[in-house]
Design a protein around this nucleic acid. Sequence first.
RNA 1: GCGAAAGUAGCUCAGCUGGUAGAGCGCGACCUUGCCAAGGUCGAGGUCGCGGGUUCGAACCCCGUCUUUCGCUCCA
Length: 506
Amino acid sequence: MTTQENSQKPKEANNSENTFKKIISHAKEYGFVFPSSEIYDGLQAVYDYGQYGVELKNNLKNLWWKSMTQLNDNVVGVDAAIFMNPLTWKASGHVDGFNDPMIDNKDSKKRYRADTLIEDYAAQLAEKGDSEKAAAIVKKMNQLLEANDLKGVYNLIVEEKIKCPLSGTSNWTDVRQFNLMFSTQVGSVAEDSNTIYLRPETAQGIFVNFLNVQKTGRMKIPFGIAQIGKAFRNEIVAKQFIFRMREFEQMEMQFFVRPGEEMKWYEQWKETRLKWHQSIGLPAEKLQFHKHEKLAHYANAAVDIEFAFPFGFKEIEGIHSRTDFDLSNHQELSKKKMQYFDNELNENGKPYGNYVPYVVETSVGADRLFLAVLCHAYTEETVGEGENQKERIYLKLHPALAPVKAAIFPLVRKDGLPEKAQAIFNSLKYDFNIIYEERDAIGKRYTRQDLIGTPFCIAVDYESLENDTVTIRYRDTMTQERVKIADLRSKIENEVSLKRIFEKLG
RNA sequence: GCGAAAGUAGCUCAGCUGGUAGAGCGCGACCUUGCCAAGGUCGAGGUCGCGGGUUCGAACCCCGUCUUUCGCUCCA
């Protein structure tokens, strides 16, 4: 019956889509990711991490944090607040540039930014020689936008009979503002409240602390500031599970360099970061660079590291050369000097002196990285032959990332085996996140651990009572090895330590 | 926001032309067993996404709504 169903589907096209669906179900069924507030039907594009998901995510964050701050003696961390003085977002360009008036054409179902629609129209007029009128239109539009008069913008479009380039009609919806920043109020009384924003990126928390960190840490350029934290964007469409969420977590590092040397560091961080993703087990063929042709307002070079998700190659990390855009703007608006005095001598034997540093940013989406790791770890394979053949599903996670490092099972629930197993559990639980389980057949217990990616299962059998040995069963190969109980700790430690990963970065 | 599809037990799904809910797996307890989702007994769990309408009667028909997935649009 199932084969019939399968053969009816155009399987090539649906294959990866089905895989993705299976991964999403798996994530929910085994305690990795749940829809937020699910008992109330959830909330669009908001998700919670469950008991195993939070362990995996914490392991990823911890690994990233240590890779940045511990392996680089010139990178330190901060943890800035989500709320920031609203002027921050003025300086960063988010208040103006993150705030788009949109309009839809009802016939073509196409959505446009109202301002670009008008500007394009004006450009056409100018081409036809009516540059005077074109300038007037643009001027009027800017006045209306300045006054936040959306109705006026709509009227302008209607008066000028601007048509949709696709459908050729003027059947427009109202002009609506899509503010991509979430706002809220500070102050308990509405009248004296001030609008503040949930940060749309964590980077600004680093920039505003540039001087604090540089001075108190006596940091010398080049140096970096790392941060892990939540950011919020009111995306028009959020989708693809935890890939694009309105609330998400970033792992960012801003690296401050001497102006003119930014491309050197940009290239270096590109390579370092690609290597990092490979070191945690993402294969080279599933990773690629994607260079931005259209650059953001702050950048002079930008590249994404993309991962081959079931729904295609998509960004998991961005590396941007942000120039001195942010620091200079903060300097201008705050009237505080965002400068660094560089004592090192240049080729003329003179100190480089005062300057606003340039910035190279590496910014990982923690949730996207989590999803990439989960997608890659999800493994379906057929084991056994003939009648014993069956499908097996497990998460092939790097042991250092696995939520649970080991599970301890007594082979049977009698004859003193549980007591022996519990003693082992108690001796290891301070060092590793481990599980003890005695219920159900041992095969079922192995399978349950496979499903959450536990790399090692330790079985206590009758031989254990005689000679203090146990078997370790390896998740990926399902093979077993007999080891001394006394050697367990060092054996597990050796496999699950972050060191295994750091060595690859060496 | 637009278009398409879907929503029945924890999961996967069945449920005829409307007659008021089922299976498998899973879950819990106990017995038997003991190395890869074992067997037995008992048990918990669903106002069929939600709200209206049609009808003597709605999981099923109609309308609305919410959520999810896919495709557009958007992603500084």
